[in-house]
Nucleic acid binder design. Structure first.
Lengths: 225, 225
DNA sequence: TCTGAAATATGACCGTTGTCAGTAATTGAG
DNA sequence: CTCAATTACTGACAACGGTCATATTTCAGA
């Protein structure tokens, strides 16, 4: 599983602010976890007793709305620390986490993290900054949901996927999502998501092969209102 | 203006975790600020050089969408610390703040807050918890925007206003907002907001007197889908 | 008290989006 | 490779919500 003190992933998250000694201590008590595509990592309302440091893979964080539909709030990727909000606030999780492809992560027990938070101000400050940025992102998403059309939101998630997760050998978006997932990210009905993707296809902005999507005209997507 | 160390407002926010010495130091360098209804406190993209501790009044935090419409992201009230996200993340503000009624606040310079953040772990941890809760709230709003109807969202803001800001002597909601503000909170066109309020009035769930709104059937509002 | 600008209200119209129903394609287990 | 089950797709239709046009009311300032 490797040692935290020589792990490169931590450079992507707040763990980089820990001292060598703290990392060695964490390394000793962490456990490795693997999840397969579609597996539930945790569900809304659960109590977490640690955070997940994501080594590989992507998962979606969803919240069940009162109308019975899931809404994807955030995509979590390599380097992210999953579960830190709940730990810090000492609350049950407000979101469910479900693997979108095979995932590999390290699980760090709550006691260890909380101990470091209490004793290492650099770490606390780094977590705080991180959370401040998450808050900004969340507020931006809120405005997007409230003000932009479904088509525009779909274009944005396609570009987001392109920019953040990249392409496979054949030029398709690396992250393969079901139409239902797209709908749940965009906040619309599955049929509407399908319809809009078909429309984008007719307009020559994207092409598809099964569930896989290729962006044919990135600039065109940018101009969608 | 009073002294921070004997100010009761701080019990509502993270400043309660500061020591008596720290409070005295803050008290010495803080300045009082007043804003009238409608005044701009700061605008999206500005650099803040401190935080505002709200003693009285309410303001809206808005973000300009690409479609040119303002979206209200949050209402900020007595006891809240305005601007802490920007300060902590060391970024320009992502939101504008505009007074909804006459406001009274204390302005605490950035250097003082950052100094306390660096030196008092209890304070940092408290700010962190606070931010974690803001993040949860923001994520919940995101789901609301994505999944619920305009009518439902309107009902929710009316109930929110009732629960958090209370009523005046005559039983009207204390916070008086323009129809445009309601539209901007709910994320819809002003005409739609007006139409929905008229509809609620016809259904006997609310009554109005000028801009003022009275909730006639709280339970009825709860049941709106 | 009067008056004009701003805010509120309402109607008409149309594009967008959700729902229901049914068909086609894809995928994964065996 | 085959089959069953899931997922993707399409059409029809209605409800929702945005825009524009046009009253009507409210309210601050003369």
């Amino acid at each position: 599983m490797g040692k935290c003190e020589s792990c490169i992933i931590r450079e992507f998250n707040s763990l980089k602010s820990l001292t060598r000694e703290e990392l060695i201590r964490i390394s000793a008590c962490k456990t490795g976890k693997r999840y397969k595509k579609g597996e539930i990592i945790f569900e809304e309302g659960e109590s977490l007793n640690g955070v997940y440091c994501i080594r590989d893979g992507v998962c979606k964080l969803t919240k069940l709305s009162e109308n019975g539909k899931d809404q994807v709030v955030k995509l979590v990727v390599k380097g992210d620390l999953l579960g830190k909000r709940s730990l810090v606030a000492d609350q049950k999780t407000n979101l469910s986490a479900i693997a979108l492809n095979d995932m590999e992560m390290c699980f760090i027990p709550k006691s260890e993290i909380m101990n470091d938070l209490a004793k290492n101000p650099n770490f606390t400050m780094d977590v705080l900054k991180d959370m401040a940025n998450e808050l900004r992102t969340s507020e931006e998403s809120l405005v997007t949901m409230a003000q932009k059309s479904v088509k525009r939101r779909m274009a944005e998630i396609l570009m987001y996927s392109h920019d953040n997760f990249g392409l496979d050998e054949e030029g398709f978006l690396s992250i393969v999502l079901s139409r239902e997932d797209y709908a749940s990210i965009v906040g619309t009905a599955t049929e509407s998501a399908i319809r809009i993707l078909s429309q984008l296809k007719k307009e020559g902005l994207i092409s598809t092969h099964g569930k896989r999507i290729k962006i044919e005209d990135y600039t065109g997507l940018k101009w969608i209102e």
